[in-house]
Write a protein that binds this DNA or RNA. Structure first.
Lengths: 141, 141
DNA sequence: TTTTGTGCAAAAGGTTTGCATACGA
DNA sequence: TCGTATGCAAACCTTTTGCACAAAA
């Protein structure tokens, strides 16, 4: 998904200093196309560089997120999840196992002037809830 | 919105014991048609009954929410917000002042079998983001 | 050299929990 | 009376912060 060059170039474009910790984090997220908590990312990064600190992982994730290089989603007050899937997409959360999955993007409906009520809409974020494939098949067995 | 009888009847229907704390919380939420944090609710309830504890407010809100008598929404990892608006609705969050507003319900698109990918959808939750009426008018002035 | 990021530890929210007591059914 | 809810305080989990030091630009 991202090779070294692409990551470093993205940092430069966004005006982010290319520190080894940030690079590690970006690379780890790019390799693992799932939603990860800051703590999971911290443990992974800390495994390869035992001096990497939890605070830096949090700070870096915030910086990467603000720069638009990773996306974060927080569901039900649990720990924020990060991923590097930059394609527009929505999310599905399983009621049973709490897994978070990406779902294909679909358009927002158009709002009438009355419905907008003076608001300006920038983003449209959907969370679908239900039971995931895995849990459904377990229940059937 | 809710009078005493209605609240007590709702508790009975849901098999919830009618404790004075729960009643207080329900009544307060019914009187204030906004999104409130558990802490705001705690402070209000505690004002009228100084013995009411924070833990009970959290426990009660969870019980009320599970019973479907209040709804909760958590946005951006900040404190969960509670409200007693049980009509189906979506939410709008202002980028600038972080206000959370209810918006009219609109239907989910229909998903094809392929899009569902073995999932069963129970709920469709939308968060619109942008700038609210108040912030827009400030910016224009 | 100048800035910005890092590591560490401590603190800050928000929420849950264990246990003895009180209270609703 | 019986079982569940409450109050209290402590614990927990996630995230942020202050400060001295290190590393990018």
């Amino acid at each position: 998904m991202f090779n070294r060059e692409e990551i470093l170039q993205a940092f430069e474009e966004k005006g982010l200093r290319a520190t080894s910790q940030r690079y590690c984090i970006m690379e780890y997220l790019a390799r693992r196309p799932v939603h990860l908590t800051a703590d999971e990312i911290f443990r992974a990064v800390n495994r390869s560089d035992p001096r990497a600190s939890r605070a830096t992982v949090y700070n870096s994730l915030n910086a990467l997120s603000e720069a638009g290089l990773v996306r974060d989603i927080s569901v039900d007050g649990k720990a924020t999840l990060f991923d590097s899937n930059l394609r527009r997409h929505h999310h599905f959360v399983c009621d049973l196992c709490a897994a978070v999955e990406d779902v294909e993007w679909f358009e927002s409906p158009r709002f009438s002037r009355a419905e907008l009520a003076g608001r300006r809409i920038r983003e449209f974020e959907v969370v679908l809830r239900g039971t995931c494939k895995k849990c459904n098949s377990k229940a059937t067995v």
